[in-house]
């Protein structure tokens, strides 16, 4: 058929048509719809309110009202099982398969430690700290095909995930960030443009402290010796050879961890980062230093 002829034709057209100007541009038909004005035959008369009844008289029944009988939204009394659900923390998930896809398509740099800021930087993961989201939950979908050596820091992980990452010679840590720190991590550029000093990260609440101090979950407050013991235990449980990290070329990168009061890698609390001038202001005042080091 004529795909060649069509290109020839269109090129010929292009050569002969006049140059584009405001005079010969027009919107695509159907892209703009005129607003209905309340005058004349179509917009006027009853003004879209129909005939008589509560609708035309703008006397609508409230949402959910069922003309007198017990409405659906009032039929169910309180159920005890969802008590306090709005106080519970949420961790929006990302699976190991998705993480592998990000790594394969170079959207996440594995030569540097991965934390929630780098995952959000890829543009394919979103979370909202103001909706009680407290970080990343790494799920085990894709644990069997995961093959990347990474130093990753998440907020929640299960045993299979930890095993899958350590099997490939990587390091996983679970760390707690309070909502203010998460807002900073979500959009670091916006934070630096407000010109504030980097704040300290807060300690976890009492009901989360057990998770983040346990070696089984690789908590950031746990004892490193217990963590290495647990690495061995997991290797035995899931049947893989525990890779020796010290012999790795990337050992220093893999060991890089954040201080419990630190929000960003490499940047201490109290510093003011200016993106325009490409400079960092570090305070020298004693009281400030004491406050930010506490």
């Amino acid at each position: 058929m004529g795909s060649r002829q069509i290109t020839e034709k269109s090129l010929a057209m292009l050569r002969s048509l006049p140059r584009i100007s405001l005079a010969n541009l027009r919107d695509n038909p159907g892209s703009r719809k005129n607003n209905k004005r309340g005058r004349g035959q179509y917009g006027g008369d009853k003004h879209g309110a129909g005939n008589k009844g509560s609708n035309q008289r703008q006397n609508y029944m409230r949402l959910g009202y069922e003309t007198g009988n017990n409405p659906f939204y009032l039929r169910m009394p309180h159920e005890s099982y969802y008590k306090g659900h709005h106080h519970r923390r949420e961790y929006p998930p990302i699976s190991l398969l998705q993480l592998q896809k990000l790594i394969d398509t170079d959207r996440v740099d594995i030569d540097k430690p991965i934390d929630i800021a780098s995952i959000v930087k890829s543009g394919l993961y979103h979370f909202f700290p103001d909706q009680k989201h407290f970080g990343v939950n790494l799920t085990d979908e894709g644990a069997d095909i995961f093959a990347a050596k990474i130093n990753i820091e998440v907020q929640w992980a299960s045993e299979q995930v930890i095993a899958a990452i350590e099997k490939n010679g990587g390091v996983i840590t679970t760390a707690y960030y309070d909502p203010h720190s998460l807002l900073l991590l979500k959009n670091p550029k916006k934070f630096f443009e407000t010109g504030q000093a980097i704040p300290r990260r807060m300690i976890p609440p009492p009901d989360a402290i057990e998770y983040y101090t346990s070696a089984e979950m690789r908590g950031y407050l746990a004892d490193p010796e217990k963590i290495s013991e647990d690495r061995l235990r997991l290797a035995q449980k899931y049947g893989y050879e525990l890779p020796v990290l010290e012999n790795d070329s990337n050992y220093s990168m893999l060991c890089e961890r954040k201080d419990p009061r630190q929000i960003f890698y490499g940047l201490e609390p109290g510093w003011v980062v200016n993106l325009k001038d490409k400079c960092i202001l570090k305070p020298k005042d004693e009281e400030l230093l004491r406050f930010y080091a506490s």
Partner: peptide, 19 residues
């Protein structure tokens, strides 16, 4: 407050990482 301005700091790599 006393502060020091560090131009082209060595930690700038860390900053560029999350831009």
């Amino acid at each position: 407050y006393e502060f020091e301005i560090v131009k082209n700091p060595p930690e700038w790599g860390y900053v560029e990482r999350f831009l």
